[in-house]
């Protein structure tokens, strides 16, 4: 049975709105059409003038682009532009001098002060009206604070009435408005029609056509003196929008534009900080260690560095792909890329080594019987098989091998991070089936959607970093590491130093820090990861003290000491007034709210409204700081040999990048949770000292080496 499609009444609403917009055009902007016709005429004559002048053709017409509009822009509103701006350039020059004379007169300044005071007076009137309401609200709330109760989560009668009102009036209206908005957004025909009509009324099309009309006229005449006339005409056309929209609406528009600009500035600053961070990371060697006492944000810093490093490795692969692409500019790289993708899907290619083997097999096959199909359809007879960079001659198969390895590094979608704690990465690979592109932006991701495309760092199997003895001898991961960013937090606890490893023997049966050849791996790590002379590897570690990691490994590193972690700052300008207001409001609300919580447990209307209002402001404020907040770390860089020479530097931690579910600051907390669960007692069950002075029995309960030694002497 076919179901009859129900007619949506919202179409009627949209049609009525359309009729209203058309009526507005007829009654308020009756001359918009004639201006459009004029502009088309100006354009036609200017084009004809341009061609006649260019090709020396005789003509008997005059271009009309410099003539003023014959009708007023908005007849009903008068068209004040004509009185403000002079019609001619000479008139403008004369007014320019008069303007500065007037600007410098005290009468004009006093007049301005009076105008400002008038505005302030209007503002005061608003405050005077608002003040009794606020006062009433305060008295009303204070009344509640006088009465104590324990009515847990019970709504007062006014609150019940308010909730009923919102459920039966506000919510349906809001739902309808949102539904209407979605309805219009989905139907492009309506909103595009309205947009075009308003653009037409505000002479937008006329302005564009007039611009091209003058462009052609100017190319034919080079009449510089006519430019002012065009500015004047532009002002007349724009006057339609300036005159029609009221001042308060312009204030709103101004605030929206200012908000947009300040956010744009904030994003630019955050990206600038990110580039500075990348410069800092690039200046470090392949292995480096970040040190700092507890709470100095060292794990946060290495996570941030690892995230930037991952992006930089991909960027480097991308850059080198282009370099190799240009060596054989007519090579059909897409055919090679598609074959690589297929081989990766079939797990024929899963590492740089397998890429090399795959390419070399193809090269051998081609060498046996050369033809285009075996060389990815490359027309080698026409374009050649070698490339000379004036240092050496490279064959096409060598470049293919390099390109394939770089493409493998670039295109793998899992994270390039291999860490001993979890790190979330959210770079997105956009692929239309051609060359894929990475979106590496850290600052514009939608926090509600990140889980849908997030990946996490690979689990670091330390056996894969050991060239000697391994903890699991038949470990399938042991030879897997080739390239990527290795991140090791608390490296000293894993590797130890010479004092801690005194009792470990190199010839022990099981793996230990002395016989696993981890340090040898560290010294040779770039060999497995070098493609096209660039090492696609970094080892980033952290520890509280540099000495906690043995000198043999530490000497390879640079040590980044975090000396100071600065306060949270905001990259977005023009937020100081909002911050002042927020601090003032939030401080007062917190005091009032906890006084209320102390006295009462029920829900009342004034507190419900106040809390909702403050929560909204708090969410906005927190959202701004989370998006545009950053903190500056003061760091000192020292050689791993600890020669005592420090280079001062700065590193920026941007909230949106590093605190957006990136990692857990208590990454080993599950161990301590498990340990605590084994205990049957908690802090409340521990014995307390009876007085200010501990007794001998109480001291014995400490199980302290020191106390035990003292007690032995008794």
């Amino acid at each position: 049975m076919s179901e009859k499609k129900k007619f949506d009444y919202r179409h009627i609403v949209c049609l009525l709105v359309t009729l209203g917009v058309v009526a507005c055009g007829v009654f308020v902007f009756p001359n918009a059409f004639s201006r459009l016709v004029e502009s088309v005429k100006d354009f036609g004559l200017s084009v004809a003038y341009f061609f006649c002048e260019t090709f020396g053709i005789e003509y008997g017409f005059t271009p009309t682009v410099n003539e003023l509009p014959t009708l007023q822009i908005i007849p009903s509103l008068g068209g004040g532009a004509t009185t403000t701006l002079p019609e001619t350039w000479d008139g403008f020059k004369s007014n320019w001098g008069t303007y500065w004379q007037l600007w410098a007169t005290s009468d004009n300044f006093i007049g301005y002060l009076l105008y400002v005071s008038d505005l302030l007076f209007t503002l005061c009137k608003v405050i005077i009206i608002a003040l009794p309401i606020i006062l009433f609200f305060y008295v009303y709330l204070s009344r509640y604070l006088k009465n104590e109760n324990n009515d847990y989560d019970k709504d007062s009668r006014p609150l019940k009435a308010f909730k009923w009102f919102t459920a039966h009036v506000y919510t349906p209206v809001k739902t309808w408005v949102i539904g209407m908005y979605c309805f219009i957004r989905e139907r492009k025909g309506y909103w595009v029609t309205w947009l075009c009509l308003w653009l037409f009324y505000f002479n937008a099309f006329t302005i564009v056509i007039e611009f091209f009309a003058f462009y052609f006229y100017f190319m034919g005449s080079f009449d510089i003196s006519s430019i002012y006339r065009q500015v004047y005409k532009l002002c007349l056309d724009l006057w339609a929008i300036f005159d029609f929209i009221p001042v308060w609406a312009w204030v709103v528009v101004g605030l929206i534009v200012m908000d947009h600009i300040r956010k744009k500035i904030a994003y630019a600053r955050l990206r600038h900080f990110e580039l500075r961070n990348r410069g800092f990371i690039n200046a470090r060697p392949i292995v480096y260690m970040v040190c700092g006492t507890m709470g100095k944000k060292k794990t946060t810093a290495i996570t941030d560095m690892a995230l930037s490093q991952e992006v930089m490795l991909r960027d480097k692969a991308f850059e080198k792909l282009l370099e190799n692409d240009l060596k054989f500019s007519c090579f059909p790289w897409i055919i090679l890329e598609n074959e690589l993708k297929r081989a990766m899907e079939h797990h024929e290619i899963y590492s740089l080594a397998t890429v090399k083997v795959w390419v070399r097999k193809k090269a051998i096959r081609w060498n046996k019987a050369p033809n285009r199909e075996k060389l990815f359809d490359y027309d080698y007879e026409r374009y050649g098989l070698t490339y000379d960079n004036k240092l050496k001659v490279t064959t096409v198969w060598e470049v293919i091998e390099t390109y394939a390895q770089l493409y493998f590094i670039y295109v793998i979608q899992s994270s390039l991070l291999i860490a001993n704690y979890s790190v979330r990465v959210d770079n997105v690979l956009a692929d239309l089936g051609n060359f894929p592109m990475w979106n590496n932006d850290f600052f514009k991701s939608d926090s509600r959607l990140v889980d849908s495309y997030s990946r996490h760092a690979h689990i670091l199997d330390f056996d894969s970093l050991r060239l000697g003895r391994k903890i699991v001898e038949e470990n399938r991961n042991s030879d897997s590491f080739e390239f990527g960013v290795v991140v090791i937090t608390e490296v000293g606890k894993e590797r130890g130093n010479s004092i801690e490893l005194q009792d470990k023997k190199k010839n022990a049966d099981c793996a230990n820090q002395k016989n696993d050849l981890f340090n040898s791996w560290l010294k040779m790590v770039r060999h497995s990861a070098t493609v096209d002379n660039f090492p696609f590897v970094r080892v980033i570690t952290d520890e509280q003290r540099p000495e906690s990691w043995g000198a043999d490994a530490r000497d390879l590193c640079e040590i980044v000491h975090i000396r100071n972690s600065g306060d949270m700052s905001l990259a977005m300008p023009f937020f100081s007034f909002a911050e002042l207001l927020y601090d003032w409001l939030f401080g007062r609300f917190t005091r009032l709210y906890y006084k209320y919580r102390f006295v009462r447990s029920d829900n009342t209307l004034p507190m419900y409204l106040l809390k909702a209002f403050v929560a909204k402001i708090n969410h906005y404020y927190t959202g701004i700081y989370n998006r545009f907040g950053f903190c500056t770390l003061s760091v000192q860089i020292e050689s791993g040999t600890q020669d005592g020479q420090y280079d001062e530097n700065k590193y920026f931690l941007m909230s949106k990048k590093i605190y957006s579910k990136r990692f857990s600051t208590d990454c080993f907390s599950d161990f301590f949770t498990e340990k605590a669960l084994r205990s049957s007692i908690g802090i409340n069950d521990l014995l307390e000292y009876a007085t200010e002075k501990a007794t001998i029995d109480e001291l014995q309960l400490q199980n302290s080496y020191f106390i035990n030694d003292l007690l032995k002497g008794l």
Binding site: W103, G111, E579, L580
Partner: peptide
């Protein structure tokens, strides 16, 4: 310190708006 900085920034914005306003006011008076 932070509050003083915020007050100064707010005053700076107000001053900028005041000065721009004077230029516009003079143009309208002309």
């Amino acid at each position: 310190m932070k509050t003083i900085k915020r007050i100064l920034c707010t005053l700076l914005v107000v001053a900028i708006v005041f000065v721009i306003g004077y230029f516009i006011y003079t143009a309208v008076q002309l």
